[in-house]
Design a protein around this nucleic acid. Structure first.
Lengths: 224, 224
DNA sequence: TGTACATCAGTGAACGCGCGTTCACTGATGTAC
DNA sequence: TGTACATCAGTGAACGCGCGTTCACTGATGTAC
């Protein structure tokens, strides 16, 4: 790896002419894919165009990725890794208390979907089988594990007699977040309009849900 | 319209040779699109292949649809219409009571997503702007109106002082349903695995949510 | 420090393919009289 | 009932295009001595 010597930005342009070797083509291709997905969705992204965008011949990408799908899967993998980091930071081990931390977690979820639509769709909407690679599946599970950890902390606050399964709680919160994000959370033309922000909608939904679980601190009057 | 004379099935095959005129090509193309979307997703579906599948020359579809997108939008339109019918039947004006009817509604939602994945992805995941046509937007709104009507009936049962906005309730239920459906509800390779059925997950989630709204009949102990 | 060499990461030309789209056309259908 | 004609819904050949993929190749880099 000689990346440190040849660190380069995205496409050709800023940085003057490059030599015969790109130096960091794999990285540049990942960024190109991200850019193209953001522009036209995971469907409208081609291997050839990624190469062009990276300023390289159409044969070059084959040195780094078997095919288009492998590149896409790598984008999704990286997306899960970032997602995990973002969610973990927001959750912050449930400090100062689980409810406040969960609120941040929801906001972070929506912010990720909004500001990284390309990652988000590679991860959840590109139809990449999780079986593509063990690495991908594990990265996805680590991201989900943050939600699950949050659910466990919440459930631990409840009296054992009326404690729901933490896994189920995590799945509910994930589903609601994903539903809000994909229906209302993005800037596409395909977006549905809404009388409130997606963040607010999600926050209100989670509060109602938690109250339903019996978490008494979770808002004592109906939200609106 | 001479369809009654020439009523035909999907692709060429059963039914013997057809004449110069197909007789019901528009219909056949819609079915072909549906079939192809089901097989390879909304991305992997081409105008030319739909024509081939309908047993017709590649130029023929242009008599019925301006381009690929218009055909896709028609699939989505028809999907919303069917979705509305299915949801309405399940809701059945809230008989015998709103909670039982809402439970049926949730099951119907999931069943539609599961048995009609092609419609479902054309409607929600193909990235077709709702602004494509007024017809499409209105069909989408009519389908959502069923959920909204259900939310209104539920809210009406609550004391006015603690009554949440029905629109918000409808959006929460829709988001949760869509989230469960798209993460766990379909047969793709991209599906996530789950320790329970998607229907059960959704039902449990809705119950918790309703309890959070203060609907006391909505299950008095935590589900699991 | 210099030289020879292996390895790596690119090139660029070529290919076959399927798609979208157009065009003048033609067979079938429906209708006016 | 029959004939002439307008309209409609197809054909099929052709085109340009961009993609995916391969191939022998070559320039740059790193390393052994």
């Amino acid at each position: 790896m000689s990346w440190s010597k040849h660190e380069r930005g995205g496409a050709e342009g800023a940085g003057g002419p490059r030599g015969y070797h790109h130096g960091n083509l794999k990285e540049a291709l990942l960024r190109a894919a991200l850019e193209l997905i953001a522009q036209k969705g995971p469907a409208g992204f081609t291997f050839a165009e990624a190469a062009r965008w990276a300023g390289v011949s159409p044969a070059a990408p084959y040195r780094h990725f078997r095919d288009r799908d492998e590149l896409l899967a790598n984008v999704a993998l990286r997306g899960f890794e970032r997602f995990e980091v973002v969610l973990k930071r927001a959750w912050d081990d449930g400090r100062p208390d689980a409810l406040a931390a969960l609120d941040r977690l929801g906001k972070a979820y929506m912010e990720f979907a909004r500001t990284e639509p390309a990652y988000y769709s590679a991860m959840f909407e590109a139809g990449i089988p999780l079986s593509t690679s063990a690495e991908l599946r594990e990265a996805g599970e680590r991201a989900f594990a943050v939600l699950r950890g949050a659910a466990e902390k919440l459930c631990a606050q409840m009296p054992a007699a009326k404690r729901p399964p933490a896994l189920m709680v995590a799945l509910h919160i994930w589903s609601l977040s994903h539903g809000v994000a994909s229906l209302f959370g993005r800037g596409d033309a395909a977006r549905r309009t809404l009388p409130m922000s997606a963040e607010e909608l999600l926050e209100a939904g989670v509060l109602v849900y938690l109250r339903g679980l019996g978490l008494s601190a979770a808002g004592d009057r109906p939200p609106g």
